[in-house]
Design a protein around this nucleic acid. Sequence first.
DNA 1: TGTCAACAGATTGTCGACAATCCGAGCGCT
DNA 2: AGCGCTCGGATTGTCGACAATCTGTTGACA
Lengths: 215, 215
Amino acid sequence: MTPPGPASRSRISASDIASAIVRAIESGERQPGERLVEADLCLRFGTGRQAVREALQQLKAAGVVEIVPNRGAHILAISAEQAILTLEVTELLFGLAARSAARRIAAGADASSLERAVAELEACRDEGDAASYMHARRHLFGALAHIAANPELTRSLDQARVHVMRGQFGFAMMRHEHAGELAQVGKLVLAGQAAEAEAAARAYVERIRHRLETP
Amino acid sequence: MTPPGPASRSRISASDIASAIVRAIESGERQPGERLVEADLCLRFGTGRQAVREALQQLKAAGVVEIVPNRGAHILAISAEQAILTLEVTELLFGLAARSAARRIAAGADASSLERAVAELEACRDEGDAASYMHARRHLFGALAHIAANPELTRSLDQARVHVMRGQFGFAMMRHEHAGELAQVGKLVLAGQAAEAEAAARAYVERIRHRLETP
DNA sequence: TGTCAACAGATTGTCGACAATCCGAGCGCT
DNA sequence: AGCGCTCGGATTGTCGACAATCTGTTGACA
């Protein structure tokens, strides 16, 4: 959960609480079905109910929790079927992010964030560690979205529940060979090969999806 | 704006306010850059500030407004460049919606909502009217998302700012020939022709995008 | 005349309290 | 024992008020 929250100064905002909860779900610290009681979260984050309620609304919009009137919020479980449907969308978005980023890098955009993410992934591939792989993957997504410079795409990728799925489907997503695949996507983007990068990105997501479809 | 809000009973909720504001932007009643003052909205909708603030947060997540601390919310303008980027995402999502819906209809899903939307579009094509075309288009999107039965896709399409763009780029999106094109997409979906429906859907969005790219 | 500081107004951010609602326990009745 | 009802605890939904912050204006001074 890590109450500290944001980077440094300023108050703890609703977005900080929301992403902290998402990370807690990712890490398995909080389980699907679990209730999220406002008062608890207020104590945990040391903030008022207003901020907590806003965070819960954001999570509801993102499809992470369900809020039933007068009953509060609880973490939604994702069925394998829903995970597959989510990955259908992710495949498109991730592919577009790779393609756009590759084009912009070919046009001279700043690639340093992506280079760092790729290096991080390659380090993970060798001495794999679940948490650091998650971290690196998030960095890669962030770098691609940043370089693609498409606000709508960034928003859609952010709100996609890909990250949340790891709590339940980590077994399928955590194989170490994926770190290498992702790094390969990053390298193609860095090389400015738009079509190849998009294909590799989609193939990466599709492979995870197939693994869910045929257990 | 239409304060009445939702279908019938129950309180006016944040989502109702948010969609009312979106419709007001669509219709040109509210302009980009305009400030959205909480107290004003409270009076207009007859609700407390809490609901209004939640609505503004939703609009912020959807990229419709920007909220600067202690300054409040104002409606974001969409540049032509941003509109094109948004349509790049929309093209993928709309195509996936058409493909998935077609597959599910071929598998026996209920198609009545889509049939109604297509009929509505064809009526618009003959006696075109801006507002009713917007209405019909929204119905078609909703029907496709409903039939596709992909929660992630539904959410992404909902939050896409396609609808908002009309306030600024109506000139490019409102041509009447589009009603016919959209109806054609609906018919292909109804026929269960997944690949053709996806191609038609993507072509529809791409055509609008090209019109923005080359004015 | 130009610049800076202080002030007034307006608006948002946050807190506390109360009302509304729901779930589960306990009790009486059949 | 089984069933329905009432009550208590807990939690959420909503309102009002106050503090914090920003903008635009006024006025003094170089």
